[in-house]
């Protein structure tokens, strides 16, 4: 029972199977599709958040500039952080549903179907 910590199902594929799948083209493609989305987007939103925090921290004058009525640049930038969070969430879900899920499901069926 060396796999007791990890493997829940009775149809556990063996180590060779995992290595084969990892080396397959489909898996490489899945990994590529995931990483080419999540890494750049994470970099982007973290940079945008950091820019916002730095502006709020060190550019008080700029952030307090009124745009209309009592609405200033800082409030607009803050609300844009909400907007960008909602937009990235939606884009990721679309990407995952369209480009990740079908391939993941195909690989999963191959692996689990094989074990039975």
């Amino acid at each position: 029972m060396s796999t007791v910590d990890h493997t829940p199902s009775e149809s556990a594929p063996d180590a060779q199977k995992w290595a084969d799948v990892q080396a397959s083209d489909d898996f490489a493609e899945l990994k590529h599709r995931l990483r080419k989305f999540v890494f750049p987007v994470s970099g982007l939103f973290l940079a945008w958040y950091l820019l916002y925090v730095l502006l709020a921290d060190y550019a008080h004058g700029f952030m307090s500039t009124k745009v209309f009525g009592n609405i200033n640049v800082g409030l607009i930038f803050g609300l844009l952080q909400f907007v960008s969070t909602f937009v990235i969430t939606t884009l990721y879900v679309r990407h995952a549903n369209k480009n990740l899920d079908p391939l993941a499901e195909k690989l999963r069926n191959e692996i689990e179907g094989d074990g039975k």
Binding site: W18, R108, E112
Partner: peptide
Amino acid sequence: DPAKQAEMEVRSLTGAGAEK
């Protein structure tokens, strides 16, 4: 451990063998 790494990576991305 390359075998465990392969298992973890494949499972994490495909959901194969995940808890039901």
